[in-house]
């Protein structure tokens, strides 16, 4: 089980009028992310747990904790597939 997530150090982020743009210098790929996705990636500069990431969304958006957690988990899955994350504390 993974305890904490951190964004990959090869990522560079840009905020373009509310939309997020992500460069992965390692894979040389480019991604677009939503405003909430950008907020999560910004928070992931330091290692974060899922509850901490849920808090990031709850502070910004009027959603239920369940909705926020579902969004966080889906986003982490997508980021994992795209190699955007480092996972810590696997046991």
């Amino acid at each position: 089980m993974t305890d904490r997530y951190k964004r990959h150090p090869d990522l560079r982020l840009a905020d373009v009028e509310g939309d997020g743009v992500v460069l992965h210098l390692g894979t040389r790929r480019y991604f677009s992310v939503s405003e909430s996705g950008l907020a999560l990636l910004q928070a992931l500069e330091t290692p974060r747990t899922i509850p901490e990431l849920v808090e990031v969304l709850l502070e910004r958006y009027e959603v239920t904790p369940e909705q926020a957690e579902a969004s966080v988990r889906q986003f982490l899955d997508t980021c994992h597939t795209a190699e955007l994350l480092i996972e810590e504390g696997t046991r």
Partner: peptide, 16 residues
């Protein structure tokens, strides 16, 4: 703007 940035990244490949 976000779509334009995607294009600019393509044509400014040194960014990587």
């Amino acid at each position: 703007a976000a779509a334009a940035l995607g294009e600019l990244v393509r044509w400014s490949a040194w960014v990587m």
